[in-house]
Design a protein around this nucleic acid. Sequence first.
DNA 1: TAACGTTTGTTATAATATAACATATTTGAG
DNA 2: CTCAAATATGTTATATTATAACAAACGTTA
Lengths: 130, 130
Amino acid sequence: MVQAQTLSRNQQIVLDIIEKAKGPLKAYSILFNVQKKGINAPQQIYRALDKLIEMGKIHKIESKNAFVACRNSDCEISKATAFSICESCEMVDEISDAKLSKYLSSFNHKKGMKFKRFNLEFFGLCKKCK
Amino acid sequence: MVQAQTLSRNQQIVLDIIEKAKGPLKAYSILFNVQKKGINAPQQIYRALDKLIEMGKIHKIESKNAFVACRNSDCEISKATAFSICESCEMVDEISDAKLSKYLSSFNHKKGMKFKRFNLEFFGLCKKCK
DNA sequence: TAACGTTTGTTATAATATAACATATTTGAG
DNA sequence: CTCAAATATGTTATATTATAACAAACGTTA
């Protein structure tokens, strides 16, 4: 079972770094940042990332192979995620829009497939880069 | 400029394989399949894939690092893509739903970002795997 | 036909991710 | 409490995905 509250040492270390970051972090950049804390191997990072994703504490931005903290209670355990991604400065913003989320969560494919989960990535230029 | 019609030799070889495939193909699996045709290096595959994506002939399934042929004229040069992905058998189906596409294409983020493009991936179990 | 852009070929390497195994720690049922 | 099961850790090695850099060939088209 996925634990509800408590994070293990490594999980907490990794989550702290991701939460403090201004943008999405890559696994190896997290690794380089925690080597002073005694974490030396990619496996240790990837294991923590996997658990944090399961718990819904972070999300993976698939198009960037990078990770951001979840700022959105609506996506409850990452069943319904949407992001806005700037193609210039790489900024990523989690979209929390109840209508959008509802619309997509209830979307059903014609071919009879029932969806459990979706991930949506929007791309453009953010205010600053426009 | 992106060429309109003609594909180069390598581009055609790569596209043929992707179009014939039943499911998404990974870059290195494409590579192994074309070594008999004199293509030996990953670069050759990735270059062809990049151009085919630009031309809208194929799409990348970001969550799988794999590539599928475009079956949908609606997504015109990959500005608006949506896929249905089976978590069991790995089947990928391109969704072409005008309403969905229109809804998302006109979606505007509250924070003032104007989107140029989106990619949506739905996950679940397909008919067979259900 | 010369200049430019595009494609190709090639070698090397970077970046991302998992396998496999041994040990330690935590948790919960009895 | 206590021991068995589940979870987490540490570690080495390796697999997978992707790009850098450079030289040569090809194909437009002015």
